[in-house]
C-alpha cells in the first residue's frame, strides 16, 4: 500500500468517526465537534494530495488547508453562539428535545 492510500484511508476513517458522532450524539456541542472532525479529515486529504502530488511547489493544498482552518474557526464561533442562544431559550443542549419550531 503506498503512502497516499494510507493517508486517504486514515482520512476516510476520521470522516466516518466525525459523521457517526454528528449523527448520534445528543449534545449539540458534540455534534458541532463531529462536523469539525469531518472538516479536519478533508484537510488531511488536501495535505496528503499536496505532499504526494506532482507539483508540491504550487502550495495549493497548504493554502486550501489554511483557509479551511480559518473557516472552521468562524464556523465554531457562530455555531457555539447559536447553541448558547438556543440553550437560553430551551434550557437544554439536548438535540432530541429540540423538535418543535414553536419556541
Amino acid at each position: 500500500m503506498n503512502p497516499l492510500t494510507t493517508c486517504l484511508l486514515l482520512s476516510a476513517l476520521l470522516f466516518s468517526i466525525g459523521l457517526a458522532g454528528a449523527l448520534s450524539r445528543r449534545n449539540a456541542i458534540l455534534v458541532l465537534v463531529g462536523i469539525e472532525l469531518m472538516l479536519n479529515a478533508a484537510n488531511l486529504n488536501f495535505i496528503a494530495f499536496w505532499r504526494y502530488g506532482p507539483n508540491p511547489a504550487a502550495l495549493t493544498g497548504v493554502m486550501f488547508t489554511l483557509f479551511s482552518i480559518g473557516i472552521a474557526a468562524a464556523e465554531a464561533a457562530v455555531g457555539l453562539g447559536i447553541i448558547l442562544a438556543v440553550y437560553r431559550h430551551t434550557k437544554s443542549t439536548d438535540l432530541d428535545h429540540m423538535n418543535s419550531l414553536k419556541g
Binding site: T5, A12, L13, L19, R25, R26
Partner: peptide, 25 residues
C-alpha cells in the same frame, strides 16, 4: 449520551466508510 437514532447514524457512518475505503483501495 446518544440520541435515539444512534444505531442508524453509526450504520450510515460505517456504510460511508466502507464505500470510501472500497473506492480508495
Amino acid at each position: 449520551a446518544f440520541s435515539r437514532t444512534w444505531r442508524t447514524g453509526t450504520l450510515i457512518a460505517v456504510i460511508v466508510f466502507a464505500v470510501l475505503a472500497y473506492a480508495i483501495s
